[in-house]
């Protein structure tokens, strides 16, 4: 079904494209939000990505690869949003926004805070790999396609980012025990 919609949209069918937004818009937004950690920036990134997808769709040869292609546009839009945002808001820390998927009870407040801080120290490229792997569930080879980098780069980025995040959790737990002994 998606292939047919892509082909129709490729020929300028706006209705078909709106159905593609319905099909994949949520996933794109979820990815963008998790990379940027900001609702408005994620909305901007997704909007830019979809409009670019609409414009460039006639050049997409393989309609079956639409989703990966679209996600690549989303990730690249996130990179740009991240850098634009960083220029004037380096000292502003947005509060986590809870949506339909609210706080997971398996994540303690301390863990959440530690992850939030550690994640914000990561580059957008590292964030994207973490989100695509741990949240979107992409295999590494697919992440390489989405991120537009070699597989080895994906592996090294994931390794680095995961280590930073794990260390943040470990440090947080050690500190928690010091402050609040059981």
């Amino acid at each position: 079904m998606q292939v047919r919609l892509v082909e129709q949209a490729r020929d300028g069918d706006e209705v078909a494209f709106s159905e593609l937004i319905d099909l994949d818009g949520d996933r794109c937004y979820a990815i963008a939000y998790r990379i940027l950690r900001d609702v408005e920036r994620a909305q901007d990134a997704v909007q830019q990505a979809f409009l670019l997808a609409w414009r460039e769709l006639p050049r997409l040869r393989d309609a079956e690869r639409f989703e990966v292609w679209l996600h690549r546009l989303v990730v690249n839009a996130c990179y740009e949003e991240f850098r634009r945002y960083r220029r004037w808001s380096v000292n502003i820390r947005a509060l986590p926004v809870d949506g339909p998927a609210g706080p997971d009870e398996t994540v303690s407040i301390d863990d959440r805070d530690a992850l939030e801080q550690a994640f914000r120290r990561l580059s957008p490229e590292h964030r994207a790999v973490v989100v695509l792997h741990h949240h979107a569930g992409y295999p590494l080879a697919s992440i390489a396609e989405v991120a537009g980098v070699p597989l080895g780069t994906v592996k090294s980025r994931l390794h680095y980012a995961t280590r930073i995040l794990r260390e943040a959790l470990v440090v947080d737990r050690v500190e928690s025990r010091k402050v609040r002994p059981a």
Binding site: A30, L51, V97, P100, V170
Partner: peptide, 27 residues
């Protein structure tokens, strides 16, 4: 830690806001 990380990443909004959807379609 990986379970905690995945659970933390799952938190947050997952639905594309209608306003964004409308903005795309309008453009």
């Amino acid at each position: 830690p990986d379970v905690t990380l995945a659970a933390w990443l799952d938190e947050g909004p997952t639905d594309l806001p209608d306003e964004t959807r409308r903005a795309i379609l309008t453009a």
